[in-house]
């Protein structure tokens, strides 16, 4: 019995130690990266005009797809909720496939901002996924409004 025990001890110990020398190199758990050139945080856009973005995506093994979304930042903003009673806030999302799993990708797109949407503060989000399923996200705050309007009730005291 003691011999069996010794063998079991040795086996378990060996299996634990050999487990250290793993072949993790094959695993890709590195997230892709997002470099947001445009828009900048706090940049203003004209309702009825165009929203353009310019991003550089990169990954160690291969990019797969990205998603762009825009939504109103009304959460926890009492003043903007009041403002948006008349018009509905805009929300947009679009997924773009990146063919061929390249290591870098420059995305430059123009999005039409529809007329008749609520003005105010919005979030633009970029979410990118690589071939292994690693995900990275980046968000900026943008302003959508009507130029020439007097922004008398527009109280943006955010520090950016």
């Amino acid at each position: 019995m003691k011999d069996y025990l010794k063998i079991l001890v040795v086996l378990l110990t060996v299996s634990v130690f050999t487990a250290c020398s793993d072949d993790d190199d094959a695993l890709d758990s590195e997230k892709p990266t997002i470099m947001l050139n445009e828009p900048e945080n706090g940049e203003e856009f004209e309702i009825g005009g165009e929203l353009h973005f310019d991003i550089e995506l990169a990954d160690n093994q291969g990019l797969a797809s990205y998603k762009v979304e825009v939504h109103s930042n009304s959460d926890g903003h009492t003043h903007s909720v009041v403002k948006q009673q008349e018009e509905t806030p805009w929300s947009y999302d679009q997924t773009f496939q990146i063919t061929g799993n390249p290591l870098t990708y420059d995305a430059h797109e123009h999005i039409d901002i529809p007329e008749g949407i609520a003005e105010g503060e919005y979030h633009l989000g970029i979410i990118v996924v690589d071939a292994a399923g690693n995900q990275e996200e980046a968000f900026v705050e943008i302003m959508l409004g009507h130029h020439g309007d007097d922004h008398d009730d527009h109280d943006h005291d955010h520090d950016h």
Binding site: L12, S15, V16, A64, S65, K67, E69, H71, S91, D93, T95, G125, I127, V129, A131, G133, N134, Q135, E137
Partner: peptide, 24 residues
Amino acid sequence: AYFFSNYIFLKPTGTFSVLPHSGQ
């Protein structure tokens, strides 16, 4: 040592969800 024939966990699918605000 444990061996699981079916360990259940949340796994990213690599496909974007249609729900607003969500990634994959």
